[in-house]
Simulated assay, not measured.
Amino acid sequence: MSAAKTKAQGIIDDNSVAVFSKSYCPYCKATKALLSEMGAKPYIIELDQVDDGSAIQDALEEITAQRSVPNIFIAQKHIGGNSELQSKKGDLPTLLKDAGAI
């Protein structure tokens, strides 16, 4: 397993909510705003601000078959991107509570 894949998997495994993001991405901003609104404190890694960001993005594609950001995990389960998160808005309080994130 590559170092980037190990790192990505570690972030997913160690955090009740993990968001792989890019600082300039409007969809990432919407995701972070919604999670914050719900009271969650996600682990956020800005892939454009870390040296191994593109390698982590490649690893996430291997893990989830999704290359785009944001790439969101709640309770170690892949949620998808911002559209998927926004569509779960009604279920989010329960999902986050069950994950121990709020």
Rank of each mutant, 00 (worst) to 15 (best):
A65T: 13
Q57D: 10
A101K: 07
S83Q: 14
G100Y: 06
D58W: 01
G53C: 12
I12R: 09
Y43T: 15
K7C: 03
E62V: 08
A3K: 14
N15A: 04
A65P: 00
S83C: 00
D13K: 13
P93T: 11
P70H: 07
L35M: 08
A8F: 09
A65Q: 09
S87D: 15
G100W: 03
E62F: 04
L96N: 05
A101Q: 09
I11T: 05
K97W: 13
S16Y: 05
A59C: 13
K7D: 12
E62P: 03
A99Y: 14
P70W: 04
D14T: 12
L60A: 10
A75E: 12
I56H: 06
E37P: 02
E84L: 01
M1E: 10
S16R: 11
L96Y: 06
P93C: 11
S87C: 08
S21R: 07
V19D: 03
S21P: 12
L96F: 07
R67G: 02
S68F: 05
S54W: 14
K89L: 02
A8Q: 09
S16V: 13
I44C: 07
K22F: 06
C28Q: 10
M1R: 08
Y43W: 14
K5Y: 11
S23M: 05
L85D: 00
A101C: 08
L96R: 09
E61S: 10
S23I: 06
A4W: 05
K97A: 15
I45V: 15
Q9C: 12
Q76M: 00
D14G: 10
L96D: 05
A65D: 08
V50C: 13
M1T: 11
K29G: 00
D52R: 00
A75S: 14
A8H: 04
G100L: 08
L92N: 14
F20M: 10
G53L: 12
